[in-house]
């Protein structure tokens, strides 16, 4: 019994060491970013690893060069609209493909997965022409529209739906619930952890998206935070101090979302149904 307990303790020490190292390696660059925000550009380039005194200077540079409220509002607007619409439309489709499978839809599904495979760089020019025809150049709608029906998220929801208990649906049908009621009243609450994961991923992707917003957004007042950081970082002598301020600020919303959502991973799915 004692040897079993010792073994147990040793293995749990190993687990903590492993996770601790993983966590340290993961967190290190983030710490470096925060430290960087307090250092001058030349110290940042030298890789200085201690806090400096340039925080106020860096923040002043950042906030005088960047209309921060407007830029963050633009990013927030795009991200929130994109996240809500993507979760709704893509989860409907993922559920639909899995539950109402038919031979024809199965073929469409395969075709849809194929669209994931083409590199975005190859689509930018045709997509830009299309947006032009819709008169959507330099609008936030043009940023959001192509991402809303995400084959990637549909794929994810379909795979996760495979774990959705069949009995629940059958029971709901017996109770006389309509298909849309089953989806909104049963499926959505039950699949909370799936939605939470998708929420984090979609939010993060939308918040950090770069290439497409860059192409369709034309004026300063429409830009997102990612675009602003990119142009700050491209000077002949980039002010990395200001870039770090921007980067830290730009990371906070996603981190906040992660903190808020991770509760959903802890509570099991079955608990929520009872």
């Amino acid at each position: 019994m004692t040897s079993y307990g010792l073994k147990q303790r040793l293995s749990s020490v190993a687990v903590y060491i492993f996770l601790g190292v993983m966590a340290f390696l993961s967190i290190f660059p983030f710490l470096w970013m925060i430290i960087g925000a307090t250092n001058t550009t030349s110290d940042i380039i030298k890789g200085k690893m201690s806090f400096g005194e340039a925080l106020v200077v860096n923040a002043t540079t950042f906030f005088t060069q960047v209309d921060a409220p407007l830029i963050f509002w633009n990013s927030a607007k795009i991200t929130i609209i994109a996240t809500v619409l993507t979760l709704l439309i893509s989860s409907l489709a993922g559920y639909g493909f899995e539950i109402f499978a038919s031979r024809f839809r199965e073929k469409l599904y395969t075709l849809m997965l194929l669209t994931l495979m083409i590199p975005f760089a190859a689509l930018m020019i045709p997509l830009f022409m299309l947006m032009k025809q819709f008169g959507l150049i330099n609008t936030h709608l043009a940023v959001v529209l192509p991402t809303v029906a995400s084959a990637f998220i549909i794929f994810y929801f379909r795979q996760s739906t495979k774990a959705f208990p069949h009995e629940l649906r059958d029971a709901a049908r017996v109770d006389g619930l309509k298909e849309w009621q089953i989806f909104f009243l049963i499926y959505m609450p039950v699949m909370r952890s799936t939605y939470a994961a998708a929420f984090i991923i979609v939010f993060m992707t939308a918040w950090n998206s770069y290439l497409w917003p860059l192409i369709v957004l034309q004026s300063n007042d429409m830009k997102t935070i990612t675009l602003v950081i990119s142009s700050l970082g491209s000077a002949y002598y980039p002010d990395y101090g200001a870039v770090m301020i921007g980067t830290v600020l730009a990371t906070i919303p996603t981190l906040f979302v992660f903190f808020a959502m991770q509760r959903q991973f802890v509570e099991g799915m079955l608990g929520s149904v009872k």
Partner: peptide, 19 residues
């Protein structure tokens, strides 16, 4: 631990590449 390990994919590409 969970949050720490998730952090890297949130980090902006600019900071990531400089680092």
């Amino acid at each position: 631990l969970r949050t720490a390990i998730f952090l890297p994919c949130v980090t902006s590409l600019v900071a990531y590449s400089v680092l």
